[in-house]
Design a protein around this nucleic acid. Sequence first.
DNA 1: GAGAAATATTTCGCACGCTAAATAATGCCG
DNA 2: CGGCATTATTTAGCGTGCGAAATATTTCTC
Lengths: 163, 163
Amino acid sequence: MPSASVSPEIKSDVDQVLETIIYLYTESRRITKELARRADLTGPQLTVVKILEQIGDLSLSELSERIRAQNSTVTGIIDRMEREGLVVRERSKEDRRVVYIRLTPKGRKLAEEIPVEPMEIFRNALQCLSANETRELLKILGKVARHVREAVRAEGAASARGG
Amino acid sequence: MPSASVSPEIKSDVDQVLETIIYLYTESRRITKELARRADLTGPQLTVVKILEQIGDLSLSELSERIRAQNSTVTGIIDRMEREGLVVRERSKEDRRVVYIRLTPKGRKLAEEIPVEPMEIFRNALQCLSANETRELLKILGKVARHVREAVRAEGAASARGG
DNA sequence: GAGAAATATTTCGCACGCTAAATAATGCCG
DNA sequence: CGGCATTATTTAGCGTGCGAAATATTTCTC
């Protein structure tokens, strides 16, 4: 997890914002992992179980998209979950390239036993803000994200020219 | 990277904030990785090289703390960097338990060739905000972080009682 | 000053997470 | 119909990332 805060002593507001975002993100992962551990799952496995519980069967690609990971990554996660008897793979009848991932009864039972959604603590913390604050936060963060997106595009163009 | 946005259709402000934070974080990692790739480095390796360039020699523990990773993780990163001749390990004379990590000339040269700090794009985007917006952002994010910390403490206490 | 507790690093085993290449099945176009 | 690009998934190889145990060294304590 690279974060590279090079001079931790005198921190500008900007660096503090960075720091806080990194804290919030890593903490949310840590929480997911901790919740998962209680059910003998890993973080990503808990995420998968909860998604399948709420949405139903998904193809591997759909699942990958949901959890923002590559297909090859999810293949591995599903391999291990299948080994543990939490899910099964089922080839689609319509398109035999597609594999659906389905919770087994064991997987479903386990999902039900974990009432808290992975991001719950994080979400609760955000709900402690007033509606105004939330809107303001969203507005400002949105602006930052927009600038990052632009910079990324510019960066991409520069390197395409040979950066 | 578990993110579990279960219903992507109707998103509340809260979920959008979450989404944006995740976007900003993952994007900042992607950018580090892309910058690194141009110098035949990995993301964490670039981070290490830049930290050592700016701060000087660090013990493995100090380095771990900087990049917010476990010692065992950093041991691996340094192993590979040493193999590539970018850094050397040197045992401390005062405390022979301690290992200092030092850039080789090759490593230093490489660091100098990468002028952009890993988080530069991200930092620039934040600097596009007005001073007021930055303060406001910091204030609100700080509040969120405080609530998360409290929730985490409460959570910890609950599980200690047998959660 | 010897044994115990503490500290710094490494080793081990496992689970992501990525890219590139391989495999399998579908659709398209002449 | 036959080949060919496209799409879905898996395989292979590598680099993190973590926790627990092992190792080496220092410090503390009696």
